[in-house]
Nucleic acid binder design. Structure first.
Length: 202
DNA sequence: GAGTAGATCCTCT
DNA sequence: GAGGATCTACTCA
């Protein structure tokens, strides 16, 4: 188990990084409570050129400021007033690329996730969908701008091998307002995994 | 099982 | 003042 190096995040090809994040393990360590989960679904947001991104057309606000920072940190924001969304910022400073982690498969600390989410059974709804995932991992907006090389939130590689034919690609979810950019094939997921959100695709 | 509406509040215009 | 990178429960079949 090794943390992903800063070089992994600082590359320019955001869709490639999104694809390579599949199968990696996200770990959170808050107040001694360690939870980890294998990433099974991601979406790439390609900065200025992407209408679905918060940084579309070079938009820069207090909320998305962290997207313009160096790669390798977290970007957490609230959607619909109640859901926390966890993103990984990539590329160099000044380029607002980000990858939304949409779903993961619980590995460690599932009992803690149950407490955090208020659920009674650890079925596939525990970490399916970005809102649920962040909640289960205990991530909230106070963790935005967090260095992924640190001790609270980090992503590790356990040499899990994902075969190319097991990777699914589709358009992104919930971004229909972005016109033609909503059709971009920027969503990556592990085929057949029950934690992947949206309709099952085979 | 599929489709739809409501929750709920921060952020930007 | 409007709307959003969502989730859940409820309706109807």
């Amino acid at each position: 188990m090794k943390k992903l190096a800063i070089d992994f995040y600082k590359r320019t090809n955001v869709t490639l990084i999104a694809k390579q994040l599949l199968g990696k393990i996200i770990v959170t360590n808050f107040e001694g409570h360690i939870t980890s989960a294998r990433i099974v679904e991601t979406e790439a947001y390609a900065g200025q050129t992407d209408k679905a991104s918060h940084a579309a057309m070079g938009k820069r606000t207090a909320r998305n400021e962290v997207m313009y920072a160096d790669g390798g940190i977290s970007y957490v924001y609230i959607c619909y007033g109640l859901h926390q969304m966890f993103n990984v910022v990539t590329n160099d400073s000044g380029i607002p690329h980000a990858i939304l982690v949409r779903a993961a498969e619980p590995l460690q600390g599932a009992d803690i996730m149950l407490v955090r989410t208020g659920k009674k059974t650890g079925d596939s709804s525990l970490t399916r969908g970005p809102g649920n995932l962040a909640k289960a991992l205990g991530i909230s907006t106070v963790n935005t701008g967090c260095n992924l090389q640190g001790d609270e939130i980090y992503i590790t590689d356990d040499d899990y091998v994902l075969r190319k034919q097991h990777i699914g690609i589709s358009k992104r979810i919930g971004v229909d307002y972005a016109a033609e950019d909503a059709l971009l094939p920027y969503r990556f997921y592990i085929k057949g995994n029950k934690f992947v959100s949206g309709k099952p695709v085979n």
